[in-house]
Simulated scan of single mutants.
Amino acid sequence: MPSTSLVPSIPMDDWSFQRPSNLFFLGDIIKFEASVNLFNHGPLRVVVDSCVATPLPDVQAQPRYSFIENHGCFVDGKSTGSSSYFLPQTRTDQLQFQLEAFLFQQGDHPSIYITCILKATLASTPTDAQHKSCSFYSNG
């Protein structure tokens, strides 16, 4: 099987360059971009299966906040009314989303570590329950 690399990055506000700092303040919008390097194979689609935030660099650490679940649903807007969501996908090999910066109420950890599981599939594969990008918006 050919090697495929998924490359996450944190871009500037206008998505043009890699952001020089990973320091954000409460309420800031954190922008994420995930892309798949195509190398020598055909067009691929990148999707985010799940993402979790923890106060330590351990995906099992507590407290933890799962903000993308169910094979690609951005549930942050559903549970908190935040402005977090997937941007419309203009390229199948690239996915952009944004998360409203937050702090854990429990503990005294000023840092948040984000771990995501990404998938790459053939671009010709239709979107389905296992390979999707959906966002929830609050009505208020």
Rank of each mutant, 00 (worst) to 15 (best):
33 E>F: 06
17 F>N: 14
130 Q>G: 10
24 F>D: 00
100 E>L: 05
122 L>A: 13
108 D>K: 11
134 C>F: 06
102 F>D: 00
37 N>M: 14
115 T>M: 04
54 T>M: 06
95 L>K: 05
68 I>T: 00
94 Q>M: 15
14 D>M: 06
98 Q>G: 00
119 K>E: 08
77 G>E: 05
109 H>Q: 14
25 F>K: 09
123 A>E: 06
71 H>A: 11
14 D>C: 05
75 V>R: 11
22 N>A: 10
13 D>N: 14
60 Q>F: 13
98 Q>E: 15
59 V>L: 10
104 F>K: 02
95 L>M: 10
35 S>N: 10
10 I>K: 01
114 I>D: 02
69 E>N: 13
101 A>Q: 07
1 M>H: 13
69 E>W: 08
121 T>C: 04
15 W>I: 09
11 P>Q: 03
117 I>W: 01
82 S>E: 05
135 S>H: 07
116 C>V: 04
32 F>S: 02
75 V>M: 12
58 D>T: 09
50 S>G: 10
37 N>C: 07
80 T>A: 11
58 D>P: 02
13 D>L: 08
14 D>N: 15
30 I>M: 08
3 S>G: 12
108 D>G: 14
37 N>V: 12
64 R>S: 15
101 A>D: 12
71 H>N: 15
59 V>Q: 14
135 S>T: 11
73 C>M: 14
90 T>Q: 13
31 K>W: 06
42 G>N: 13
5 S>I: 14
57 P>S: 05
6 L>R: 01
27 G>W: 03
120 A>T: 10
132 K>T: 11
89 Q>W: 04
127 T>F: 06
120 A>L: 05
90 T>W: 09
90 T>L: 15
63 P>R: 05
122 L>I: 02
135 S>Y: 02
70 N>G: 08
25 F>G: 06
66 S>R: 15
133 S>V: 01
56 L>H: 07
85 Y>G: 06
1 M>Q: 12
82 S>K: 08
102 F>G: 00
115 T>L: 01
22 N>F: 10
122 L>C: 06
113 Y>A: 01
23 L>M: 11
27 G>I: 00
117 I>T: 13
102 F>H: 05
129 A>L: 11
54 T>D: 00
134 C>V: 13
101 A>S: 13
99 L>K: 01
88 P>G: 03
7 V>D: 12
137 Y>Q: 09
60 Q>G: 11
11 P>M: 05
73 C>K: 15
20 P>M: 02
134 C>W: 04
48 V>S: 01
95 L>A: 12
36 V>Q: 01
52 V>M: 02
13 D>Y: 06
65 Y>I: 01
70 N>A: 14
98 Q>Y: 00
60 Q>Y: 14
104 F>N: 03
97 F>V: 04
96 Q>A: 09
49 D>I: 08
99 L>W: 00
124 S>L: 08
97 F>E: 01
133 S>I: 00
14 D>G: 04
53 A>N: 03
130 Q>K: 12
119 K>V: 01
10 I>C: 04
